[in-house]
Amino acid sequence: MALDNAAVRKIARLARIEVTEAEVEHYAKELNAILGWIEQLSEVKTDNIAPMSRVVDMKLPMRKDIVSDGGKQADIIVNAPETAAGYFVVPKVVE
């Protein structure tokens, strides 16, 4: 299933990456080459095989539901491009 330019634009939008028209052409070619190569996975019989999402067979550990860290507002915002009064600042979202 080859990706056309519209599909590339849609993926770029989902990925929140701005692309120019020239880049769309380029990405379509590159992504199709990579996806074409990935296509060989369809040869593998995987009926009744459970998908593997972790390599170490263990139960995720539980911890007590208590506050273990915090009080670090200054640390958290120190690297932000724009802050005000201890908050992150973003362009206006609500008119």
Partner: peptide, 24 residues
């Protein structure tokens, strides 16, 4: 990496535009 909490921010017309330009 969305231009809000750390690293680079490239400003845009609105928040979505800012995300897309920052990441591009």
């Amino acid at each position: 990496y969305d231009g809000v909490r750390f690293g680079l921010r490239v400003s845009g017309d609105n928040v979505l535009d800012m995300y897309e330009k920052t990441r591009a």
